[in-house]
Design a protein around this nucleic acid. Structure first.
Length: 410
RNA sequence: GGAGAGAUGGCUGAGUGGUCGAAAGCGCUCCCCUGCUAAGGGAGUAUCUGCCUAAAAGUGGAUCGAGGGUUCGAAUCCCUCUCUCUCCGCCA
């Protein structure tokens, strides 16, 4: 959530900051609600103060065997007034909370203006000389000895994949390689729960906005990304300043309904209901988060570089930046069959947006401050397989063995 | 799945209707003392939030797993939920 103090300040400036952010919250209304709320809160606290004083006197009178009838009557009248005020207040509070939860993060000043991906800015190209055009698609190259979509459909339906033989091995080795690389850069490997509480989904910003894209049953949600569990690892904690920066890496399956993407990427490994991903999360001090974002991107990039896959780095514009992020760089890998770059990692600074929601703080001197949280994929494993297969046009066991050997040696 | 016990500050743990945000101990911070070390003495030590302040100080409200209820007053009584532990059963 955003700093609620902003709602008491310059409303027009807040509005302009949220331009392009697809927020439907009526800030004028909300700001009225905020002042109504604080007035009512103040009044009720004053009343409570009076009541508490009388109650204390009653207690003292009782313990010294004095009569307190008059005090009791006075206190009772306060109690009535307080309870009706509290009733009003709780209605205002729930509306307030509901609206606040829908406000997206404010983007950094240097994030480009713009409504959608057409305003995104390419900030870096890597491996131009490696780009090959018009290759066969990974789907074509792999079916059905390595990618058995038909049998996957038999088991689970559309948008599921069964990897076989060397492709299955490659998936496991790739994940292993990615984790190894990140550990060597100081990340702590975490093995996380894949089923999480609703609260955990809320804390990391998946709820309430993206409810329709998440699978759930009983009281659980299936994680759409390992970020959910990693972000919640330290929720409701006040960390020792010395513990920061905290760098975490996990490997997990991710589950998404992909409800808004019928007809897109229906073949292959690009858009599945279940895919595996290596995820990076950092918990850092506020003054470090800008630099930490750069190094997070570099950490994800290094995987692509070591695999010699051509890619570009894209700075997303305000309209295309996710709900929780203040700034996002996407890594897009070259896909020869589409002659296009496709997203393979998304690295974001959320500043204090997630840490406010999940209450992750650190102690600095005598004061507690919200930490800054960053997250990024490092990388999506399925898409990495697709990119490797297409860029190297892999078709047989020998090709697979070569690349698997290479990965093991890096 | 069955039976039982429990959830209090950084930790252990006392507290069953009233000067209780909470005894005591441990830990931690600062100070004193002793040549160093060990030991000892003193002070401080939860979170969120309102007002006030340049800031500190000060002062209100809320928080004893979560939410609701009873009451002038709830850590304490009642209800619902969540979680943890122990035993039995089942099981990778």
């Amino acid at each position: 959530m955003i700093d609620t103090g902003l709602l008491k300040g310059d409303l027009e400036s807040l509005k302009s900051k949220l331009k392009f952010r697809h927020s439907s919250v009526d800030l004028d209304y909300l700001s009225e609600l905020v002042s109504k709320r604080s007035n009512l809160t103040r009044e009720s606290e004053e009343l409570k103060n009076k009541r508490n004083e009388i109650s204390k006197k009653i207690g003292i009178a009782r313990s010294t065997n004095q009569k307190a009838d008059e005090l009791l009557m006075k206190a009772a009248s306060f109690a009535k007034e307080i309870s009706s005020m509290e009733h009003n207040l709780s209605e205002i509070n729930s509306e307030y909370k509901q609206l606040i939860d829908q406000i997206p993060n404010i983007c950094d000043e240097d994030v480009p203006l713009g409504e959608d991906e057409s305003s995104n800015v390419v900030v870096k190209m890597w491996g131009d000389e490696l780009i090959k055009k018009d290759g066969k698609s990974h789907d074509e190259l792999l079916k059905t000895n390595y990618l058995d979509s038909e049998r996957a459909a038999k088991i689970s339906g559309a948008r599921f994949a069964v990897l076989r033989n060397r492709a299955a091995t490659l998936e496991r080795e790739l994940a292993n390689f990615m984790i190894r690389e990140h550990i060597s850069k100081g990340y702590e490997e975490i093995s996380i729960p894949f089923l999480v509480k609703e609260k955990a989904m809320f804390n990391s910003g998946q709820l309430p906005k993206f409810k329709e894209d998440a699978y759930s049953f009983d009281a659980f949600y299936l994680i759409p990304t390992g970020e959910v569990s990693l972000v919640n690892l330290y929720s409701n904690e006040i960390l020792d300043e010395k513990m920061l920066s905290k760098k975490l890496v996990c490997y997990s399956p991710c589950f998404r309904k992909e409800s808004g993407s019928y007809g897109k990427d229906t073949k292959g490994l690009i858009r599945l209901h279940q895919f595996s991903k290596v995820e990076l999360v950092k918990i850092v001090k506020p003054e470090e988060s800008d630099n930490e974002l750069d190094s997070l991107v570099a950490d994800a990039e290094s995987i692509l570089q070591k695999l010699k896959l051509p890619y570009r780095v894209v700075l997303k514009c305000r309209g295309d930046t996710g709900f929780t992020a203040s700034k996002t760089f996407d890594l897009e890998v070259w896909m020869p069959s589409q002659n296009k770059f496709r997203e393979i990692s998304s690295c974001s600074n959320t500043r204090d947006f997630q840490s406010r929601r999940s209450s992750i703080k650190f102690r600095r001197g005598k004061k507690n401050e919200y930490a800054h949280l960053l997250n990024g994929s490092g990388l999506a494993v399925g898409r990495t397989i697709a990119a490797i297969v297409e860029n190297y046009q892999i078709t047989n066991d020998k090709d697979f063995d070569d690349i698997i050997d290479l990965i093991k040696k890096i």
